[in-house]
């Protein structure tokens, strides 16, 4: 039941995007997210959508995997869209009026616009995690934060990166563990998906306590194993895998710059469709 979680999962494949430098991927993802917020008007949003679609096609991961994320956020999408439809008042006559509810064209436009924007945000960030393994991600974050060493925070950067990679590495383990404990308690007749709120919270105890206990145990085991292999923090450590920028990274950066330029141009000289 818990094996449907795909957010933050890595899908190994051999695509241009998979092979791109993780540092570039992180920075560009952040850039595209900013661009999505800069985009004003449907033309700009359409260009962003086209860019995102091209990108996910390049990842060679089935489009179905991206659409699956929709299931997790459809409630948020619906709520924001609904709020916009009902709250935004336009200049002209309302399209629909009933007692205190009135819906304007602007409201519907806004709702669609925001829903598409949220959807693109999700797609572009899952493209990053789908194509970048957790180790690559943390490695890249460590590199990106390395300027902090200049102000004497070098150790903190390494510790942060190590914490992140351990946390990421243990997500599947903990999911598996939760699944096992849930099965075991269900086999003893525990009911988890019925009853009122208090009953449900109480029903979580037989899962939370063993999970907490085994997490602590795992943390001790891991710390001991790391010490046995002479782990002493980041001092003097070199990397087995060096990151190098290549042509494809520049091509990606170039693509995002074009996207940024067109979105900014469209802000200055808007094209109005309707």
């Amino acid at each position: 039941m818990l094996n449907n979680i795909t957010i933050g999962q890595y899908f190994p494949a051999n695509s241009v995007i998979h092979r791109a430098d993780p540092r570039v991927k992180i920075l560009l993802t952040v850039a595209v997210i900013v661009i999505l917020f800069l985009a004003s008007g449907f033309v700009a949003l359409g260009i962003c959508a086209a860019f995102c679609i091209l990108l996910i096609l390049l990842t060679k991961i089935p489009v179905k995997m991206y659409l699956k994320n929709l299931k997790a956020i459809w409630a948020v999408l619906l709520l924001t869209a609904a709020l916009n439809v009902f709250y935004i008042t336009g200049e002209g006559d309302p399209l629909f009026k009933w007692k205190f509810i009135s819906i304007y064209t602007e409201g519907i436009e806004r709702a669609v616009f925001i829903a598409v924007r949220i959807f693109l945000l999700i797609i572009i960030s899952s493209a990053l995690t789908y194509t970048t393994s957790p180790t690559e991600l943390t490695d890249a974050i460590e590199r990106l934060l390395s300027p902090l060493k200049l102000i004497g925070l070098g150790g903190a950067v390494h510790v942060f990166a190590m914490m992140m990679s351990i946390a990421l590495r243990f997500i599947p383990t903990l999911i598996e563990e939760t699944d096992k404990i849930m099965s075991a308690q269900k086999a003893r007749g525990a009911e988890m998906d019925s009853g009122n709120l208090i009953k449900r919270i109480k029903a979580m105890l037989p899962i939370m306590i063993p999970l907490l206990f085994s997490s602590v145990r795992r943390a001790y085991d891991l710390a001991e194993a790391m010490e046995c292999r002479c782990y002493n923090g980041g001092a003097g450590k070199t990397k087995m895998k060096q990151l190098h920028l290549s042509f494809r990274d520049f091509a990606l950066v170039f693509g995002v710059i074009i996207l940024l330029a067109s979105v900014i141009l469209l802000r200055i000289f808007p094209i109005v469709l309707f």
Binding site: I181, Q185, A187, G189, L205, I209, P210
Partner: peptide, 20 residues
């Protein structure tokens, strides 16, 4: 299905980790 689970009991691998 809950009644079935009382009829068919399962002890999983390393069951000591489910004590709470």
């Amino acid at each position: 299905i809950r009644d079935v689970r009382f009829k068919v009991g399962i002890v999983f691998q390393y069951p000591e980790y489910q004590l709470f």
